[in-house]
Design a binder for these strands. Structure first.
Length: 626
DNA sequence: GACGTCTAAT
């Protein structure tokens, strides 16, 4: 038997030699309590086994072994726990709970439910701990098993745990994640003694069901808020794209004397990343350093990501260097950083560096590196990585990776190849995939294919998403098929697909100035108009010809121009102008900004919704390829 | 004897 073989491998450590014979149980227990990894545990277990304590019904060592394996994160230790469990004659409730808990926290939570069925069949009684573990398994499953949740609910009541606040909170959460906010709130209302977790779970439930308003109300009604209450709201705002509200709430939390934990910090750093709020991000980083908070893998990659998205790759790499244990998430964040800055070669270098240091790429790493290849036009490199994903790395490409590849091929003008890839991919292509191909048709003016796809899409799925329709309208417009253009645009109005207003922001002396297309409310609007008139004159001298459409629209219709004009007014010569916008940069803005960078000898760094453009001396880092 | 709420990157 495997365990016996391991016993012969056992190398006694100085402590374990002491008095194993005389006081086996105490000795083993103390070893178990100090045990920190599976290898050690197996050795100790081998001793337990050898001494005959292993499968006695209810010995402490066996329970410890079981508990250790069940709480270890990987599936290997869980398999070991299962073996130990199977060797026990008639496991008691505690043991059943332990193994169920192990599966509930694993990648195969359904096993927890299967085990419970066996537990019932063996007539082992449940206790107050059984249900939270089972419900945890339900909550982790996707799609969430509403039927099972209901059945467990019935059992909770039937076996007398209906008033247990732990069971109720778990139940509430399980209903909420399966979208049953009504049921969740009923459970909440019936809890006789709600605690703070009940309240927090209810807030989270409303957020998960998209009811931010209700979440706010409950949050406001709470008298005692802890860090989880605050963080639930902060991350809720981030999820809803309300980044400024998230930052405000973070400050409210600090003002109220609640100390942020790692989770709160991660959500807030992410809000900064989305906003491009470098100053605020730095402030939080400083806070982390000052408080000596340990940078865990998630905080680390969130910081790297934040600096990268705020345009500061040097600082992103500095954060990376300071991380002691560099895991896949930190490496991936750097690779992704170079990707959005259009530095494909650099991304590839880091991708190799990561593997040389023995870290294996995961699915997200591949999204990052394929994006890097796509944005930098590294077609061969991207193709070869994509082809080797499964063979070399044992990672099966998923729809996101196909999306990157369609984009990569499409940008490079390999439209047929892109189409073939779509036809050969497993599963149904989504609107991201079709959008990438349509955009490629638009850029490379392959109207034939564009129209073909457009018609196919309209026929197959009249209710496709807004961005897709926009591309389609553009294809028809380029093909000068005005009837079709009008028809598609009408669909947009019917479906209330509103073109998002352009918004460009620029940060001067730590203050964020936002310019929205069509909005003239900025206090310095007159100055900005004057400035633009001067810019416009100089650009025309340089040979800039506005498109017909551009001539008709005043400067305030273009948020980029407003922001750049403002930036030129408010900064000294030679200072880089940094702009963050909410849409993809348009052709005209791109041309204009290139010219400005030359005429005014100014570097302009612009982050659009997908990537960075570094304008310098009349050129853009994207190589006009975006 | 252990349990429930909040976490990054497409």
């Amino acid at each position: 038997m495997e365990v016996k073989v391991m016993a012969s491998h056992f190398l006694p450590s100085p402590t374990s030699q002491l008095s194993f014979e005389t006081n086996a149980s105490t000795q083993t227990l103390s070893l178990l309590n100090r045990c920190s990894n599976m290898e050690e545990l197996k050795q100790i277990h081998a001793q337990v086994f050898k001494k005959g304590y292993a499968f006695d019904d209810d010995t402490l060592p066996v329970r410890k072994v079981l508990a250790f394996c069940s709480s270890a994160p990987d599936s290997g230790s869980l398999a070991y726990a299962q073996k130990v469990f199977d060797g026990i004659d008639s496991p008691n409730t505690f043991m059943w709970n332990t193994i169920i808990r192990g599966y509930a926290n694993s990648t195969q939570p359904e096993q927890a439910l299967f085990l419970y069925r066996r537990m019932l069949a063996d007539s082992v009684p449940q206790n107050a701990y059984t249900f939270p573990f089972l419900l945890k398994a339900c909550s982790s499953l996707s799609p969430s098993p509403l039927e099972e949740t209901k059945q467990i609910h019935a059992q909770v009541v039937k076996f007398g745990f209906g008033f247990d606040v732990f069971a109720a909170n778990s139940l509430l959460h399980a209903y909420a994640v399966s979208g049953r906010i009504k049921s969740a709130s009923l459970v909440f209302e019936r809890i006789p003694q709600r605690d703070i977790v009940s309240w927090n779970s209810m807030i989270d439930g409303y957020i998960k069901c998209g009811e931010m308003g209700m979440a706010c109300e409950i949050f406001k009604a709470m008298t005692d808020k802890n860090v989880v209450s605050w963080t639930t709201m902060i991350s809720g705002y981030v999820g809803a794209g309300m980044y400024k509200e998230a930052l405000n709430l973070y400050h409210d939390m600090q003002d109220s004397g609640v100390k942020p934990d790692n989770v709160a910090l991660v959500s807030t750093i992410s809000a900064c990343a989305h906003l491009g709020a470098l100053e605020q991000g730095r402030w939080i980083h400083t806070y982390i350093k000052r408080k000596g908070i340990e940078i865990n893998p998630i905080v680390g990659s969130a910081l790297i990501d934040m600096y990268a998205k705020c345009g500061d790759m040097e600082e992103a790499i500095e954060v990376f260097r300071r991380i002691k244990k560099k895991g896949v998430s930190a490496w991936t964040a750097v690779v992704f950083g170079f990707a959005i800055h259009g530095q494909g070669r650099e991304a590839l270098k880091w991708f190799s560096g990561m593997q040389e240091s023995g870290v294996k790429p995961n699915m997200i790493t591949f999204t990052a590196i394929l994006t890097a290849c796509s944005y930098a036009g590294l077609v061969d490199e991207g193709k070869s990585l994509f082809e080797n994903m499964e063979k070399e790395y044992n990672l099966k490409p998923v729809i996101e990776h196909y999306g990157c590849m369609v984009d990569l091929l499409g940008r490079a003008g390999l439209l047929k190849e892109a189409k073939q890839l779509i036809d050969s991919m497993p599963g149904r292509p989504n609107s991201v995939i079709w959008g990438a191909l349509l955009k490629a048709c638009q850029i490379h003016k392959n109207l034939e294919l564009g129209k073909k796809i457009g018609e196919m899409l309209i026929e197959r799925d009249p209710g496709h998403s807004g961005s897709l329709i926009l591309h389609l309208a553009n294809v028809y417009a380029i093909a000068e098929e005005w009837d079709k253009t009008v028809e598609v645009r009408k669909q947009m109005t019917d479906q209330r697909v509103c073109k998002l207003l352009g918004c460009s922001s620029i940060s001067l002396k730590g203050i964020f100035h936002e310019f929205i297309a069509g909005d003239t409310s900025h206090p310095q609007m007159d100055k900005i108009n004057d400035m633009w008139n001067r810019i416009s004159k100089r650009l025309k001298q340089e040979g800039y010809k506005p498109t017909t459409e551009e001539k008709e629209t005043a400067i305030h219709q273009n948020s980029d121009k407003l922001a750049i004009a403002f930036g030129l007014i408010g900064t000294k010569p030679g200072v880089t102008i940094r702009i963050i916008k909410n849409l993809r940069v348009c052709e005209d803005s791109h041309t204009v900004t290139k010219l400005i960078s030359k005429v005014y000898s100014r570097e302009v760094v612009m982050r659009d919704i997908a990537r960075f453009h570094h304008f310098k001396n009349g050129k853009c880092s994207c190589g006009d390829y975006w």
